[in-house]
């Protein structure tokens, strides 16, 4: 269906992959799990692509502790492997990751990769929202150059990221969460096969008196071309005792933080309403995880 496709490459090293990507330029497309790439192909969006560069043999797979309690997820780690990793599932700070992995079918969890779901740069995807709430950063490699890109700067537009042509994500890094941190994620969808109406990821960090020392409130789904960081909601939480009153204030504030999309899935008014409900619920879940 990708009518002009000439070849499918399986490079064995990052260097070899880089060389191929440079040689084919705009005609090359990276394939990790291929679940998103295949979707582009069946929609007829790969007609310019002449070379698929499958990076699954580069060995970039696995989850490890990076210095002082942070976690590094290599780019080719599958979503299922992330969900099964004790480093993730045992830490309430990473609760939003486990939540986000409740939605895709097993067949996608087994194949879709950490790097692929981030590189796709679609605010409709769940896991990147959780990574944003955890202040994650992308490690990317272009030929011999390696650089870090905070996820906050990574998503530039719909299907558009800060990656340069030929640049490959090698890992997603999550910094060590502060003590007394927990996170949570929720998504609203009409059915399991449809795109998200709205999703919310939050992280809550409490001080020793139970007040919100820090928080992240991230919105995805029908909120525009990229994820949105809800800074008004975060401001409403700062310094307040974590509980119903401050969560209600954050929920009320969140409507100032985004332009709700209006489409056949949901009206803008409904999305604004759901954003408030889900901010309250995810904050409640995060707090309960600290309990």
């Amino acid at each position: 269906m990708a009518l002009n496709l000439e070849d499918y490459f399986l490079p064995a090293s990052l260097q070899e992959a880089s060389t191929l990507l440079q040689r084919y330029g705009d005609g090359a497309m990276v394939v990790a799990g291929g679940t998103f790439v295949h979707g582009l192909e069946v929609r007829g969006l790969l007609t310019e692509t002449v070379a698929l560069v499958d990076i699954s043999r580069l060995g970039l797979r696995g989850i490890s502790e990076s210095g002082n309690g942070g976690v590094s997820l290599q780019a080719l780690t599958t979503l299922a492997e992330v969900g099964a990793a004790p480093l993730i599932s045992r830490n309430p700070a990473f609760g939003s990751i486990g939540d986000a992995l409740q939605y895709p079918p097993r067949q996608i969890l087994n194949v879709g990769t950490v790097g692929g779901c981030v590189a796709a740069a679609a605010p409709l995807y769940d896991l990147p929202a959780a990574f944003l709430a955890l202040d994650g950063q992308v490690q990317a490699s272009l030929a011999a150059r390696q650089r870090a890109i905070p996820l906050n700067d990574f998503f530039v537009g719909l299907f558009e990221s800060a990656l340069q042509r030929g640049e490959i994500i090698t890992a997603i890094e999550l910094p060590a969460p502060a003590a007394r941190s927990a996170s949570a994620f929720l998504k609203l969808e009409t059915n399991a096969n449809d795109l998200s109406i709205l999703n919310v990821a939050v992280r809550l960090t409490l001080d020793k008196d139970g007040k919100c020392a820090d928080s992240r409130v991230i919105l995805g789904g029908g909120v525009g071309e990229t994820y949105v960081r809800a800074t008004s909601a975060e401001a409403a939480l700062r310094g307040q005792t974590a509980g119903e009153a401050s969560f209600a204030a954050a929920a009320a504030a969140v409507v100032d933080d985004f332009e709700a999309v209006e489409d056949h899935r949901a009206s803008a008014a409904y999305r604004r309403h759901i954003a408030q409900v889900y901010v309250r619920r995810t904050l409640g879940t995060a707090l309960a995880r600290l309990g």
């Binding site: 499918y8 295949h38 699954s56």
Partner: peptide
């Protein structure tokens, strides 16, 4: 899903 996996991969 075998429909989403490239055979070459």
């Amino acid at each position: 899903y075998s429909c989403m996996m490239y055979a070459a991969g």
